[in-house]
Design a protein around this nucleic acid. Structure first.
Lengths: 174, 174
DNA sequence: TGAAATATGTCAACATCATTGACGTAATTT
DNA sequence: AAATTACGTCAATGATGTTGACATATTTCA
């Protein structure tokens, strides 16, 4: 058997990029499936590193965003991840007990718990980011790095726009 | 507050695309985060349609691949999804009981259970695919559809290559 | 033909990550 | 002083994944 389905993701006959079709004749199965497989492998590699610490993807996301925005508050993290307080609490507790993350009371508003990575946490964050960076770098190199901005644009366009702060009045600067 | 972190995914100073750096100076956080947010919204919209039937993402994936490859066997589906028999069994049972999927014994090998979508299943599959197709179409249009092949190439390069049938001897036809 | 391998289904037990809703405490704002 | 905010926590639940074992029907092979 050896499933020939795996190799050829979808050598489909290129979906009709016909802007006139109201009901698209054929969905773009190729990109739909490529996104599925690409994302799976993109997060799958870090998963194996996280396993060694007994962590999962949820821990990865928390570590990533604290690394990116040191001093992040719990509320901000909840907004970014779009999960519930309870979901975050468990993961955050693991990371704090394992000495990957530390909390400091806010200077201005002492109710806030500002989140920071410890050295240990930063090391893990770097390891995870490096894996994903290298995978992306290989892929960007394959298409030519001059095309990287288009990849970014394409991905940005996939994201829901009405979400986030969206003051509705201010059409957003940029 | 309104978290200004959400709008600007990562207007990072463009990671050094320096091929000489062994240890990349700075990870490509922009693309890393765009992939995270893009994928979340890409599957999030179908999620809301699936909810109405009491289904989740796992059901989506099964419906998708049966739609793409009618007559697929259970073993092939397991290979594609890379999950365990037990995980698939639960989801498949839901879909069969709900009359979205039907099984037929293989003509040659009667041990096999060939999987097909019912009309109801095909309708759901079409609805889900249309959502994702339209989202992709919008994004492709934004960068110019002549650049679609590069998107496909980029995503394909993110995928693990050593996986799949890979007979090691036969260098694969293509 | 009889034994081994294959394709599938199923059971039990468990882990991770998500949910909702409620409640408590400390700090800030009104 | 009262209301709101930021955070922590408890209980219960659900979806999805895991491992390992075992049963059944069918096909293949020696």
């Amino acid at each position: 058997m050896k499933s020939p389905l795996l190799s050829a993701v979808a050598a489909a006959p290129a979906p009709p990029a016909d802007p006139r079709a109201l009901t698209p004749a054929l969905p773009d199965f190729e990109l739909i499936e490529l996104l599925f497989f690409a994302y799976r492998d993109f997060v799958g590699e870090p998963d194996r590193l996280l396993e060694r610490h007994g962590f999962g993807r949820a821990h990865h996301r928390v570590i990533h965003f604290i690394n990116r925005h040191p001093g992040l508050t719990v509320a901000e993290l909840l907004d970014i991840l779009e999960i519930t307080k309870q979901s975050l609490a468990r993961v955050l507790k693991d990371l704090i007990h394992g000495d990957f993350v530390e909390q400091k009371a806010g200077a201005e508003d002492r109710r806030q718990r500002l989140l920071f990575l410890t050295d240990k946490g930063r090391a893990l964050a770097d390891g995870l980011a490096t894996m994903q960076h290298q995978r992306i770098t290989r892929a960007v190199a394959a298409i030519g790095s001059e095309h990287r901005p288009m990849i970014a644009r394409f991905l940005a366009e996939l994201i829901d726009k009405e979400r986030g702060a969206a003051p509705a009045t201010a059409p957003s600067a940029s």
